Simulated assay, not measured.
Amino acid sequence: MDTNNFIIFVLSTILIVLIISPNHCSAQLKHNYYSNSCPNVETIVRNAVKKKLQETIVTAPATLRLFFHDCFIKGCDASVILASPSGNAEKDSEDDLSLAGDGFDTVIRAKTAVERVPGCKHKVSCADILALATRDVIVLSGGPNYGVELGRKDGKTSTKASVEGHLPLARFNYKQLRKMFASHGLSQVDLIALSGAHTLGFSHCSQFSKRIYNYKSKSSIDPKLEQGFAKELQKQCPRDVDPRIVIPLDPTSPFRFDNSFYKNLQQGKGLLASDQALYTTRKSKRVVNAFAANTTLFERVFVAAITRLGRLGVKTGNQGEIRHDCRVVNND
């Protein structure tokens, strides 16, 4: 068995383990959860997401990132969408301030569309709508289609303090990334697969400026960056750059969900230090190389990983509620 086939065999085995080893609470989630209460919910959400995506391409990465941030803090309960009059909600934290408004707007629009259907009114949680919308932006961007587990309730609390230190940062090395993902019961393969979401989206220059200026000395560049790519980044992000300028995380196909993110890592073109860090150990390189070589494999493992992500901290039964408005908790 040659190296590539061996890697695919090993990763396929891991994939099977991921699928048959559910996270805590996942048994209470199911694909047909709304079959009686709101049978057309997936179509309603998909149509709303499609319309929003036609208006602005940023909808896809913004929604994907919103889902990740929500699940990584207090579990997948849409608490990241809650607003606070005093500015003390999750969305007000420094690490969440960069979340694009289009992600929030996508969920709110989809929720509004669902609420307009008489039989669906007050039946579908914002957390489930966010999970569905995330799947939909992936599909509409050329990525894999998959069944979304449903049955989450919405959280009732959201605090800025809960975010600090609980999200991976752009400067993280591989050890730091693995530790954070492991704290949520997510594996090395989950980490690398979910990072593939960076095939969509953009980053502000401030998130990687130290890689192209003042890396170790005043004029040095991060040696992990391909030097030609680094020089190009310097042109796009001069030292006194406008903070509103953004650069695609995947310079090859920034609007398409594909495996080019991994091909970029092989060439030293991972924009963020935390992205290129995935190509710094022997084991992680093997996974990156396998994903770069086989789109189908990447998509299958990604679906398993994002399904596991969607099970984190799920609130069911009396643990949460179904918000009437995603931005505020219910009064009753």
Rank of each mutant, 00 (worst) to 15 (best):
I7T: 10
F9W: 09
P22I: 04
P22Q: 08
S26G: 06
A27T: 14
Q28I: 06
Y34T: 07
N36H: 11
C38I: 03
I44F: 07
R46C: 05
A48Y: 02
V49I: 06
K51M: 10
K51R: 14
T56P: 00
I57H: 09
A62R: 00
L64Y: 02
H69T: 13
H69N: 13
D70V: 03
I73Y: 00
K74R: 15
G75V: 06
S79A: 14
V80K: 09
A83H: 13
S84F: 02
S86V: 09
G87P: 05
S93W: 02
E94K: 12
D95R: 07
D95Q: 10
S98A: 12
G103M: 04
A110Y: 08
T112G: 08
V114I: 11
V114P: 03
P118C: 06
G119K: 14
H122M: 12
A127V: 05
I129T: 03
L132M: 12
R135D: 01
V139F: 08
V139L: 15
G142K: 05
G143V: 06
V148P: 04
E149H: 07
G151F: 01
R152N: 11
E164T: 14
E164G: 12
E164Y: 13
G165L: 08
L167M: 07
Y174K: 03
L177G: 06
R178T: 14
M180S: 13
S183M: 09
V189G: 08
L194P: 01
L194F: 06
S203L: 04
S203Y: 01
S206F: 00
Q207C: 03
S209M: 04
R211H: 00
N214H: 07
Y215G: 04
I221H: 05
K224C: 10
L225V: 01
Q227C: 03
G228F: 00
L233R: 07
L233A: 10
Q234D: 11
K235D: 15
D240Y: 05
V241I: 13
P243R: 12
I245W: 01
I245R: 14
V246I: 15
V246G: 11
I247A: 13
P248K: 08
L249W: 01
T252G: 07
S253G: 07
S253T: 15
P254R: 07
P254K: 03
R256C: 08
F257H: 04
D258C: 06
N259F: 00
F261W: 06
K263N: 11
Q266M: 14
Q266C: 11
K269P: 03
D275G: 08
A277V: 03
T280H: 02
T281V: 00
R286V: 12
A290E: 13
F291G: 10
A293W: 00
F298I: 01
R300K: 15
A305T: 05
I306C: 09
R308M: 02
L309C: 04
L309I: 04
G313H: 06
T316K: 02
T316Q: 08
G320L: 01
I322H: 06
I322S: 06
D325Y: 12
V328L: 11
V329A: 12
D332P: 09
D332I: 09
